[in-house]
């Protein structure tokens, strides 16, 4: 479906230095630095996948999305999506894709949402029947009925994002690019958006590529992660695999009847201790969680036990650290 091969892209950025003299000099001679936004990016995505694209700010996520959506032409490398080269056959290609920029609206600000939808219908030349069916479906699944007659400027961010996503799906795209679709949304809206992305992926088989900083998005949606940093592709694999690599540690929290002395558990590290509650981290490659609990129950009268995986955010931080980002 999507194949990128050795995509590289660099930008020339004018150097700006502080100071009046430097600024005056810059009027005549501009010094440029070359920023390599993408370096030799290679991956392929199959039909119907949801792929999470992650990386710290400025890593090249948006640039990749722009290359894949045909806005930018890379310096080197090839990209084939549904048989098209995005930047070559732009108009034919973009009919097949939907793009949502989380920070920019594609709706017309002062008019009701439905008017924007109708204009998009004309822009994409969507047949009336298809358009009707899609609007009905989207209205139902995204709960838009009360939003459609409202001018966009009066919508909350969460409401607007639902409309944005709906707008990008009116023309039945096969691939959907979402650039930070949950940025700035409250918890309820985030869950609604995630749920919807799952639904369209399952029911319509739309391939979804999303960038995000919210690891919960990834956890809820993506069965595959691409991590990019300094323009390089650093990780390509499933979240489970990442967990196995970095998430070998589990946290065990135990509550017990009062006990005056700290207990020791072979293979586990004590994080905190009170007379009724203790936290341990267990490296599962050295000690099984069950063994640790067994040791604990021998020494203590346990009331409650909770075992948690290392939060995904921490795994990502470790991953960033490993690549010194």
């Amino acid at each position: 479906m999507i194949t990128l091969n050795g995509i590289s892209k660099s930008f020339k950025v004018a150097k700006r230095s502080a100071g009046l003299r430097q600024a005056a000099k810059a009027l005549f001679v501009r010094e440029h630095t070359i920023v390599e936004a993408l370096r030799d990016i290679t991956f392929s995505i199959g039909k119907g996948e949801i792929v999470g694209y992650i990386g710290p700010n400025g890593a090249g996520k948006s640039t990749s999305i722009k290359v894949m959506s045909g806005i930018l032409v890379p310096d080197r490398g090839s990209c084939e999506i549904m048989g098209y080269t995005p930047w070559k056959e732009r108009t034919a290609y973009v009919k097949q894709i939907g793009v949502v920029f989380g920070q920019r609206s594609q709706l017309w600000w002062d008019v009701p949402v439905i008017d924007s939808f109708e204009l998009l219908r004309d822009i994409y030349k969507i047949p009336t029947q298809v358009y009707r069916a899609n609007v009905d479906l989207l209205t139902e699944t995204l709960d838009l009925a009360s939003l459609l007659p409202t001018p966009v400027r009066q919508l909350s961010l969460g409401q607007r994002m639902r409309c944005e996503i709906a707008a990008s799906l009116l023309h039945d795209p096969q691939v959907l690019f979402l650039d930070e679709p949950t940025i700035g949304l409250d918890a309820v809206s985030k869950i609604a958006v995630r749920h919807f992305i799952q639904t369209i992926n399952k029911e319509k088989g739309i391939t979804v590529v999303l960038t995000t900083h919210d690891m919960n998005d990834i956890e809820a949606l993506a069965n595959r992660i691409l991590m990019i940093g300094h323009g390089r592709l650093l990780y390509d694999g499933s979240l489970g695999e990442l967990r196995r690599r970095f998430g070998a540690q589990k946290t065990i929290t135990v509550e017990y009847r009062e006990h005056s002395l700290p207990v020791r558990v072979e293979g586990a590290e004590l994080l905190s201790w009170t007379a009724e509650r203790a936290m341990f981290t267990v490296d599962t490659s050295r000690c099984k969680v069950a063994d640790a609990i067994a040791q604990l129950s021998e020494q203590l009268e346990l009331v409650d036990v909770a075992v948690e995986a290392t939060p995904i955010d921490e795994i990502i931080v470790q991953l960033y650290k490993e690549h010194s980002l």
Binding site: K66, S69, G70, I71, R90, T91, A92, V94, K95, I97, V99, F101, R104, Q106, I123, Y124
Partner: peptide, 14 residues
């Protein structure tokens, strides 16, 4: 400046 032109480029018209 506000990036609206990117939006135009992902629509199938001139």
């Amino acid at each position: 400046v506000n990036g609206g032109f990117d939006r135009l480029l992902v629509r199938p018209r001139s």
